[in-house]
């Protein structure tokens, strides 16, 4: 690293490279200054707030005052004691898992096809068509689904005018609509992470399998897919985490009766002003996501070796 280290450091300190200990000491102090603004930002904007949130979750709720009072597990007891909240957690899990599964089923072919397209130009277009929606923001995409799926939306009015249905079909504000909306949001993440995985694996293994007599499906399932396993896993993990924490899609597309975890955090904090309980829901959400991620990665490590 030494050569590269010099590059980064003296460029900004303006010092000439000095040998030995002086150099190392100077490098360390300059690294400190270079890291100071970014670390301060993350500490003040993320780490301290999260610590405070953890503290808030064990405080006693007093509607009359925002002060943090007492140490109690009553908020957690309430969450795990009330079937209503457990049901919301379960629903969030089911939605996240089904979204991840469908994203996998659609994302693998999409990523595979993009990685094997021979024309450079077409590949660039397909990658842009994946990435642009990814960075489009949830509000706009939710709006898109709403105009498509609403009772008076595009799909219903098209079906009505074609005479295929007599009454609008209820799609918006159902669980399926939320899953559809989330898949659209998450699929680009899956595609983009798998595309580079397939690209890196290359075609030689598939070709080797085929010359040895393996038909395309066999070559794909016995060779390509196992080699892509680490990438597939991280893609799934990403989708799962994002689905667990989705806010805009369930609120706008699911409507008031289809409740999931992230919107509940907002509701408790802003509408009910019960910060301790909002903090509890947020932390339970984070903890469940984290535990499942770690557990599944351990399970996969056992099966496929180091990922």
């Amino acid at each position: 690293m030494s050569a590269l280290a010099l590059t980064g450091e003296d460029s900004l300190t303006g010092g000439l490279p000095a040998p030995g200990a002086t150099d190392r000491r100077r490098r360390r102090s300059s690294a400190g200054w270079l890291l100071f603004p970014s670390l301060t930002l993350v500490l003040a904007g993320l780490v301290l707030p999260l610590a405070l949130m953890a503290r808030t979750s064990v405080a006693h709720f007093d509607a009359a005052s925002p002060d943090l009072v007492g140490f109690t597990l009553e908020n957690y007891a309430r969450f795990f004691g009330e079937p209503f909240y457990l049901m919301i957690l379960a629903r969030t899990l089911v939605v996240a898992l089904s979204c991840t599964a469908i994203c996998l089923v659609l994302g693998v072919p999409a990523a595979f096809v993009i990685s094997r397209v021979e024309s450079r130009a077409l590949k660039t277009v397909l990658i842009l068509a994946t990435i642009i929606p990814l960075l489009m923001g949830n509000a706009v995409r939710a709006a898109g689904w709403m105009v498509l799926l609403a009772d008076k939306g595009l799909i219903n009015s098209a079906l009505l005018s074609a005479g295929l249905i007599a009454e609008p079909v209820r799609i918006l504000y159902t669980g399926s609509a939320v899953v559809i909306g989330l898949i659209a949001v998450l699929l680009p993440f899956m595609v983009i992470s798998l595309e580079s995985v397939f690209e890196n694996i290359g075609t030689a293994y598939e070709e080797a399998a085929q010359t040895m007599g393996a038909p395309p499906w066999t070559a794909f399932f016995r060779v390509t897919l196992p080699l892509a396993m680490p990438g597939i896993f991280s893609g799934c993990l990403l989708c799962f985490v994002l689905a667990m924490n989705a806010y805009a899609t369930p609120v706008l597309i699911g409507g008031p009766s289809f409740q999931m975890m992230a919107p509940k955090v907002f509701e408790q904090a802003i509408k009910v002003y019960n910060w301790p309980f909002a903090a509890t829901i947020a932390l339970v959400l984070m903890a469940v996501t984290l535990v499942l991620s770690v557990a599944s990665s351990l399970a996969l490590q056992k099966r496929y070796g180091v990922l």
Partner: peptide, 20 residues
């Protein structure tokens, strides 16, 4: 015929041994 029906044996330049 596709490669899997030809019955040829191919040694690749980089070998392409299945790493898994």
């Amino acid at each position: 015929l596709p490669p899997y029906l030809r019955d040829a044996g191919l040694v690749f330049q980089g070998y392409a041994l299945f790493p898994h």
